[in-house]
Design a protein around this nucleic acid. Structure first.
Length: 423
RNA sequence: GACCCCUUCGUCUAGCGGUUAGGACACGUCCCUUUCACGGAUGCGACAGGAGUUCGAUUCUCCUAGGGGUCGCCA
């Protein structure tokens, strides 16, 4: 048994946005490397100059970093086997092409260079799909270099995997049908192909491939929509893989320990935003007040709410089990931070229709103004006293007070609101 | 069209010849409760179809159907 140190790579092309499927591929590669004590390499496949954009490049880096997928070799990090941009590796490709030509495996065709397939049956052993047999091909020989001297994906991909010492290729199943071509190339170079693991695709809720128009296709959308990286990380793991554990909510350390690439399924999985939201809510709830304040502040700021107030962290805590996304916080806590908060129109009409409500509120206000013990306990006691004086149950007073204090019919406990808002 | 992968509740899945087919999300009901939630309990709900192998198929084989993917001088 070979015990080569594991070297895996994520090789995106900077031509659009970071696709959630790509992120999941990166995630599985990362998990595998971390589980095996190997290296996770980031390689940018930017051979198609016309389609590359700086924005797409930034989206890849930002998305991976947001998810906590740090790379051991690659852009901005460096490494022994660089450069890690294919656009900077032309001389290496030239060299490999020369070898192929010396072996009599290429020919020119209209200025382009084609690779002569072996036209033998090819077996692709796959850690996920098992042995996949491909009959001798009848496809036309594959172009590896364009007339302008630039190289084609399949060629660069194989050359780089050889040069970078990649031991395991974990990638989307959409590449499975082309893998025999890569195997043929490896053989032509006199190399053994790496171990392959083709992971299932992520489908949209209607069962077709996720595309830019589908909700949640871009990793950036999760950042914007108020998801937590740990929640997305956890959920993505569960799409195509079931950790051998009693529960589904698992932290990174546990996921690394449990990860086993041969446990990955071979069937495609549909994306379920509701379940992701559930995970997000779970992770939100276990955040400390400081962590939550830090995470939610940008979203509150966007809504025009400053979190400088000393009670900001406590205000967020008071509603954290009511929300699933960071973007929902402003709608739940805005009244803590401003004097002119809006009142729900329907509720205003409904409450005003009962004249006794006015009497009750005025009585409460009068009583509160004389009350000294402004703690949750003290406030609760005061409310009970007012209720007793007015001969109603405290439960009648609570909704009125909540509405007067917050303008809403939902929210934290009345005593909590009153206490945080201050006398 | 050819080739490749896949097929268990609505969704993600457990299962690796004998199970009352289990769990999670969602949904229904009940409890808790000053609202909204959380939480707890409970319910609804699946082996695509057909042959074969076997004492016995969700599980193994084949066929059909369906879904997805690949067949570029895109990656």
């Amino acid at each position: 048994m070979s015990t080569l140190p594991v070297r895996v790579r994520f090789a995106p092309s900077p031509t659009g946005y970071l696709h959630v499927g790509g992120a999941r591929t990166a995630l599985f590669n990362w998990l595998y490397a971390r589980n095996r004590g190997g290296k996770f390499i980031l390689r940018i496949e930017d051979t198609d100059e016309a389609r590359n954009t700086p924005e797409a490049m930034a989206a890849i880096f930002d998305g991976l970093r947001w998810l906590g997928l740090d790379w051991d070799e690659g852009p901005e990090i460096g490494g022994e086997r660089g450069p890690y941009f294919q656009s900077q590796r032309k001389s290496i490709y030239d060299d490999y092409l020369a070898r192929l030509t010396a072996a009599g495996r290429t020919y020119e065709d209209g200025g382009a260079v084609r690779f002569k397939f072996s036209r033998q049956p090819i077996n692709v052993p796959d850690l996920v799909c098992g042995d996949v047999q491909f009959a001798a091909t009848e496809e036309p020989d594959m172009t590896v270099r364009r007339p302008d001297g630039s190289y084609i994906f399949h060629f660069c991909n194989v050359v780089d995997d050889i040069e970078m010492g990649i031991t395991h290729v974990i990638r989307g199943e959409d590449h499975l049908s082309n893998t025999w071509k890569h195997t043929d190339l490896f053989h032509a170079f006199g190399k053994h192909p790496p171990r392959y693991a083709h992971i299932p695709l992520i489908l949209n809720p209607s069962g077709s491939k996720m595309s830019k128009r589908d909700e949640g296709a871009a990793v950036s959308s999760y950042i914007q929509d108020g998801y937590l990286p740990d929640a997305v990380f956890n959920y993505l793991c569960l799409l195509g893989w079931t950790p051998r554990a009693e529960k589904e909510k698992l932290d990174r350390a546990a996921l690394i320990t449990l990860f086993e690439v041969s446990d990955v399924h071979s069937a495609n999985a549909r994306f379920d935003m509701e379940k992701l939201k559930w995970f997000n809510a779970q992770y939100l709830r276990e955040m400390s007040p400081d962590e939550l304040l830090a995470a939610a502040t940008p979203f509150l700021k966007t809504a025009g709410i400053s979190t400088d107030a000393s009670f900001a962290a406590a205000a967020l805590q008071s509603v954290k089990e009511k929300v699933s996304l960071l973007t929902e916080f402003p709608g739940w806590v805005h009244f803590f931070f401003r004097e002119d908060f809006p009142f729900e129109a329907d509720a205003v009409t409904k409450l005003k229709s009962k004249p006794e409500n006015k009497v009750l509120l005025e009585a409460a206000a009068a009583h509160f103004s004389t009350f000294a013990d402004w703690s949750e306990h003290g406030i609760h006691k005061a409310i009970e006293e007012v209720a007793a004086l007015q001969s109603v149950k405290p439960g009648v007073l609570m909704p009125l007070l909540r509405f007067a204090l917050s303008g809403q019919t939902r929210g934290p406990g009345v005593t909590t609101i009153a206490n945080l808002a201050g006398k």
